[in-house]
Amino acid sequence: MSKYPTTRNFCFGKQIAWAGHQALRTYYGQGHFATVQAHFLRWRQFCDWLRDYYGIRDTGAIKSHHLDDYAEHLAQQVEEEVIAVTYAQNLLSSINTTLKALRGDGHIRIDSPSKRVGRRSHIRRELPTGYDWDRFQSAVDALYDVDLPRAAAVAQLARSLGLRLREAVLGNIPRWLRERDERGEIDVREGTKGGRGKEVARWVPVDGAGDCALENADSTRRELGCGNNLLKPHETYDSFVNDGEIHRARVILHRHGIKGYHDLRAAWACDRYFDLADRHAPVVMQCSPPDELSEEEAEAVNTLKKELGLELAQELGHNRLDVLAAYIGSYRS
């Protein structure tokens, strides 16, 4: 317990992270030191997130929607391959344990951590955040205002070319510029999921927005003395993403209503679907039920499942049509 009497954090102390540690020690009867330490380290990450995103410094202020937002935040990081699925699940489990130790009950908890991260929703039912270009540009401007130019460049690459976070950070920008000039598209090889880029070419078309994103990324890397990608010499991907600009940028994006870099990728997918099919993606049209589809719309669905769907899936770096619904929604409810 705290040396000084306080009612904050269920009387376990004034500092939210420290209070969680004290509650865990009490919960485990001053034993199980390794378990207590593991829970505490994961709990401390959650406390940092609460402070950065919501300014919360008292566990009594934590509500269920905060846990839901954090679970979604972790799910985004899993999708972007920043953290492993098992680690994200352990983070959520430790929050449940620590909150139970603090509160003395299980009223505020995350149900089924294994289902909250690591499993992509089969059908997107909400418009991707960042789909609106004005909102997106406002977020990019904010990143520049706080001197996060590389994070802004990554965001533009994700929104304008549908790149994963790792792909945008590690991509060979000079080669991309040559490919754009020669054939109007780029081959995404570095940072691909499962290392597929080394074996299978993945060509992504470059339009006006993509052209600006590439030029900006190239200008940024040269001004900051980076190599062929957006990393500085002696800088690692993990340090840039977990402790550097990308980590700080997530808070800025969140304040502008953008959940994360993966949602920017989904926004690109919706735009690209419109380019291919000449009609809005299902999630943009709010997922009209099948029995309300016109004959023309029904034909579009069949087309999506075949040639256009496969083309879009490949441009996203997938080889399965069923993954598309997580990006653009589906006409089937």
Results as ranks from 00 to 15, higher is better:
Asp187Ala: 12
Val188Thr: 05
Asn9Thr: 08
Leu148Ile: 06
Thr6Trp: 09
Ser160Phe: 04
Lys63Asp: 08
Glu245Ile: 03
Gly55Gln: 01
Lys14Met: 06
Asn319Met: 05
Arg175Asp: 12
Leu304Met: 14
Gln15Met: 04
Ala267Cys: 07
Arg222Phe: 02
Ile246Asn: 09
Gly104Asp: 08
Ala298Phe: 12
Ser2Glu: 13
Arg183Phe: 01
Leu231Asp: 07
Ser64Arg: 13
Glu295Tyr: 03
Gly118Thr: 04
Met285Leu: 15
Val200His: 13
Leu293Arg: 14
Lys193Cys: 12
Ala168Ile: 08
Leu304Ala: 12
Val117Leu: 02
Arg272Gly: 11
Pro149Phe: 02
Trp133Ile: 15
Glu179Phe: 01
Ser219Pro: 00
Leu312Pro: 00
Arg159Val: 01
Arg125His: 12
Tyr53Pro: 00
Tyr54Arg: 10
Leu148Asn: 09
Ala142Leu: 06
Asp263Met: 05
Ala38Asp: 15
Ala209Lys: 11
Ala34Asn: 12
Arg255Thr: 02
Thr35Trp: 10
Ala277Tyr: 00
Tyr28Pro: 00
Lys63Ile: 01
Arg119Tyr: 05
His256Trp: 04
Phe10Gln: 02
Val283Thr: 09
Tyr237Leu: 14
Val146Asp: 08
Cys212Lys: 15
Leu321Pro: 01
His73Leu: 13
Tyr54Thr: 00
Asp187Ser: 11
Asp243Arg: 13
Leu91Glu: 14
Gly244Met: 11
Tyr70Leu: 07
Trp18Asp: 03
Leu74Tyr: 02
Pro128Tyr: 07
Asp48Thr: 10
Leu157Phe: 08
Met1Glu: 05
Ile186Cys: 06
Glu80Phe: 00
Cys11Asn: 14
Trp133Ser: 14
Gly118His: 02
Leu231Gln: 07
Ser288Arg: 13
Arg248Pro: 00
Arg44Glu: 10
Phe46Arg: 04
Asn302Ile: 07
Gly225Pro: 11
Arg8Gly: 00
Ala201Thr: 09
Lys198Gln: 11
Arg135Asp: 15
Asp322Cys: 09
Gly29Thr: 09
Leu91Thr: 11
Gly197Tyr: 02
Arg42Thr: 01
Ile95Trp: 13
Asp52Tyr: 03
Ala142Pro: 11
Leu24Val: 05
Gln286Gly: 00
Gln37Ala: 13
Ala139Phe: 03
Ile173Leu: 14
Arg120Cys: 03
Leu304Gln: 09
